[in-house]
């Protein structure tokens, strides 16, 4: 089997990956896919990419993607890449909405970014729909108090 020189092998570090959509959105060939199933967000990517770009690597906010130019093909794995991250479930409706790692990162950084300690913000554990519902109920309650 001959391989054009421009091929590169994709390495993903599942420990660094947050489970966001950056690499999947970046790939011009849409080779990196994901789906949410059974409590996990599962990613799939080819082991070897025929493209000559580095967009997936550049987009990754966690530096989890490494691209290695391929010279020697012997002894290389051709098995497509697949890795999973556990999803976080909304504490109200129990629907999964993002990965646990993204939420953990959010909790760690809220203090630095907007000055909220982890205990002060309880919305990160809710899905967007429940956040909207909670917020509008809170606004309605506040309006009733003011009346």
């Amino acid at each position: 089997m001959t391989v054009p020189e421009l091929h590169q092998q994709i390495h993903v570090d599942p420990d660094r990956c947050l489970g966001c959509f950056a690499c999947a959105s970046a790939c011009p060939e849409q080779r990196i896919t994901w789906d949410d199933r059974e409590g996990n967000r599962r990613f799939r990517a080819p082991a070897v990419c025929a493209g000559d770009c580095t967009r997936c690597r550049d987009a990754c906010p966690a530096d989890a993607v490494r691209l290695e130019p391929m010279g020697e093909t012997a002894g290389r794995s051709w098995e497509p890449l697949s890795w999973s991250l556990p999803l976080a479930r909304c504490r109200r409706c129990r629907e999964p909405f993002t990965t646990q790692k993204i939420l953990a990162l959010l909790s760690r950084t809220l203090e630095a970014t907007v000055g909220l300690s982890a205990g002060e913000a309880d919305w990160p554990s809710c899905c967007p729909a429940c956040r909207r519902d909670l917020e509008s109920r809170r606004l309605l309650d506040a309006a009733r108090w003011n009346r």
Partner: peptide, 18 residues
């Protein structure tokens, strides 16, 4: 924007969505 979607996880009111 890289369309990573982290902003949606951060919005306190669920009004920023992917």
């Amino acid at each position: 924007c890289t369309h990573c979607g982290l902003c949606a996880a951060a919005c306190p009111f669920g009004v920023l969505e992917i």
